[in-house]
Design a protein around this nucleic acid. Structure first.
Lengths: 251, 251
DNA sequence: CGCAACTTTGACCAGATTCAAAGTAAGTGG
DNA sequence: CCACTTACTTTGAATCTGGTCAAAGTTGCG
């Protein structure tokens, strides 16, 4: 568990938020932008491998991922780890710890990242003053639920090959939609250990399964991650039909 | 898929809601009660086995389970089924379909049940007029997320025996907290097929695993369901530490 | 009584784990 | 710049958990 957190020297103004320029995200209306600007109390950057939120600890903040990748996980006492989900730009982190603020999972940076920081205490104020933003937060929570439902279906009922295909199609799709892929780098920055811990498989079997996807020319493993060559065929192999998303809200 | 839905002849007034008398639930404050009373548009009863919400369909309603048991599931094209979660009194159903209202899972009655019916359209109004209730809804969504996280950890990383122990401890605990157990009947009304489909196991292996729990005198299988004899030891066997919940909100 | 749904058991098989070890790539300090 | 370390990937072999197939037993119900 590294500690590579630091306050960002220069703060991104919400008015110039790179996310709001992307097609995948909705625009702010009326005085929402001004409110969010006030709601945001700071910015944080972290290196890959940095732990952002620790399981069991109280955390007074909520975060929106501004750039980079992160993931959430839980571990059993003997060290078995289950990765629950991944975060890409626009995702809200830390909401699960609602009310008490006591987190029940750990969040770690998968790549260098930037976070917008919000005070948990101020959420009540947001709910009173900006019902539309409150609704967005609920929408975001409901969306995370739908994703977890999909993951549960995968881990519970799909074969190792189907699961792998699902996960990589899923991550590639999310990455494309959140603008995290540049023209130069379309690699999902995960190790095979991450894949294994997400899918409930051993690392050895994961490696053998990914080999099959490689042989089918659906993916390549390179530059410290996974390059998806054919997302559509991965989805098909997994039997996964992703729902088309309209512009999604973010805060 | 049975269709045993029907409008309840007599409607429970929120002022006399049996849930608000239970220790597990929070009380309404100020004019919340009056608002919820208006927000509720009707009541529905259904027999065990009735499908309440169908995957892929649009549903204009939200429901709160007033009495009985329900469960949510998804199926793959070839019929493999994954049960995602169970609902006990006080649980909100249908929120995941936010915005569009298009559901991505099916909800089925596990026992005879009663639902309070709300209009999805009116949620915006609720968010504007009652931030505290809006906050509750978000809290409920975040809580469901935490539960799904636990399930994911179980299915992904626990052995068949641990998984079974976890599920039964979990369901027993939820049942106790929601007042669904009477003094006479403390049986969780599930079949072994339900357990199998929840845990990602085959029914044969599920049966053999449950046998071990029976031999350890942790459970009994009777009266069309599972009687938990020792919830604490089940939790221990699963390596599951449930977090103590304060009074939880409901609508 | 007879059907339908569910539970139980045994035998065999397969997918996935564990163990072991070697190969590869990137990063660090001398 | 090279030797060394660390993290990650790859492969093979043995083992085991859990799946599939098959069939019988049980329970509730019309």
């Amino acid at each position: 568990m590294k500690n590579g957190k630091s306050r960002a020297p220069n703060r991104t103004e919400c008015a110039h938020c790179p996310l709001s320029k992307l097609e995948a995200f909705r625009r702010f209306e009326g005085d929402e932008l001004a409110y969010v600007e006030k709601f945001k109390t700071g910015e944080l950057t972290a290196d890959a491998g940095t732990t952002i939120i620790v399981d069991g600890a109280h955390n007074a903040h909520l975060y929106t991922l501004l750039s980079g990748w992160a993931f959430r996980y839980k571990i059993l006492e003997d060290g078995r780890r289950q990765i629950l989900n991944y975060a890409v730009p626009g995702d809200l982190l830390g909401l699960q710890g609602s009310i008490t603020g006591e987190m029940q999972h750990t969040i770690e940076a998968l790549s260098p990242l930037t976070l917008c920081v919000f005070e948990r205490d101020k959420v009540t104020d947001l709910f009173s003053k900006h019902p539309s933003l409150a609704y967005d937060i609920t929408w975001i929570a409901a969306r995370e639920e739908r994703i977890l439902d999909e993951h549960l279906l995968s881990i519970g009922r799909r074969s190792a090959l189907e699961r792998s295909a699902y996960l990589l199609a899923f991550l590639n799709r999310r990455a494309r939609n959140s603008g995290i892929f540049t023209t130069k780098n379309n690699v999902i920055p995960i190790t095979q250990q991450h894949v294994a811990d997400t899918l409930g498989l051993s690392i050895v079997h994961t490696n053998k399964t990914l080999k099959k996807l490689r042989e089918k020319k659906l993916i390549e493993w390179r530059d410290g991650g996974c390059l998806v060559l054919d997302e559509a065929r991965l989805s098909e192999l997994a039997g996964w039909e992703h729902t088309d998303e309209k512009r999604r809200p973010f805060i």
